[in-house]
């Protein structure tokens, strides 16, 4: 496909007798933010490390813009920018030195403007060990994009960040996507994946168990919709009336939550019941399951 940037086909990675990744297939299109999700040990890191050229695959095809990461590392290095989960920088290296160091190896002029854009103005001469976690992450991201690679791989980019730093990084990721860059995002944060990604693949025990947009994935689960109801006199709390299409009922704080396969009749029946009981509605929410709920459904069975 013309806009295909990355292809993973029948990919397999083995460590001794342990099969870490077993026949994984996915592709990523230009300008996408593609999420790679999965619990610890699912095979995310092995997949990313092979894409980054850090490890050799044991089978299948890996292709980034026509380049085989294992066989053509010299071509690969200018095609990808990687923000590693670990620091990746010497403790005594300053932000400015890091920018000059990595840009020199990529053969491009240093991008000090990126340091300012990522809120590191005034920190250019601070050593890496003296930066906060958020500043370290932002510096790593600045270095990953400084040579303008078409593909960026982000491994847990917002782990350990405060709310405002997360929001800043998310805004930057969206800017980069808008500029046409392709982003591979590995994360444990389902809210982040749901908010940021165009498509995700969920890995479990070395295999992909689901792939698609977050909306598609949440719609293809067991098909339940959450109907959460809070009323003035809380008559639903002790009421076990079998509302139509409801398969499960739970109480969470002041809400009664119904899992419905057909929310229309369920909501209509609840409202009719409240009216008959002379109770007054305070809050009514009809929600699809979140990606996190879908993820848990897939990974825990």
């Amino acid at each position: 496909m013309e806009d295909q940037v990355l292809l993973v086909k029948d990919f397999r990675k083995v460590y001794g007798d342990f099969v870490a990744v077993d026949g994984v297939n996915f592709e990523v299109q230009r300008g996408e933010i593609f999420g790679l999700l999965g619990p610890n040990g699912a095979g995310k890191t092995s997949t990313l490390e092979c894409l980054e050229g850090l490890r050799q695959p044991d089978g299948g095809t890996l292709d980034i813009l026509g380049v085989n990461p294992a066989r053509e590392p010299h071509k690969l290095r200018n095609l990808i920018g990687v923000q590693l989960q670990s620091s990746g920088l010497p403790a005594t290296m300053t932000a400015r030195e890091a920018m000059r160091f990595f840009c020199a190896y990529h053969g491009v002029a240093p991008r000090d403007d990126l340091l300012e854009r990522l809120g590191l103005q005034g920190k250019q001469d601070a050593q890496f060990q003296g930066l906060s976690t958020g500043q370290q992450r932002r510096l790593s991201l600045a270095l990953a994009v400084a040579h303008k690679p078409p593909v960026i791989i982000l491994d847990e980019p917002t782990a350990g960040l405060d709310v405002s730093s997360r929001a800043e990084l998310h805004a930057l990721m969206q800017e980069l996507r808008d500029e046409g860059l392709t982003i591979i995002l590995a994360t444990h944060d389902m809210a982040e994946a749901e908010k940021m990604t165009d498509r995700v693949a969920i890995l479990l025990k070395g295999k992909i168990v689901a792939t698609g947009s977050p909306t598609e994935l949440t719609a293809t689960g067991a098909g339940f919709t959450k109907v959460s109801v809070r009323t003035e006199r809380a008559v639903l709390m002790d009421n076990h009336t079998a509302f139509p299409a409801v398969s499960q009922r739970i109480i969470r704080e002041e809400y009664v939550i119904y899992w419905s396969i057909d929310p229309g009749p369920t909501v209509a029946a609840i409202l009719a019941h409240l009216s008959a009981q002379d109770d007054k509605l305070i809050d009514l929410r009809v929600e699809r399951p979140s990606l996190e709920e879908r993820f848990l459904e897939l990974t825990t069975g």
Partner: peptide, 9 residues
């Protein structure tokens, strides 16, 4: 750190 160096050539 060497992993990062390798990725960046």
């Amino acid at each position: 750190i060497f992993r990062s160096y390798k990725i960046n050539g």
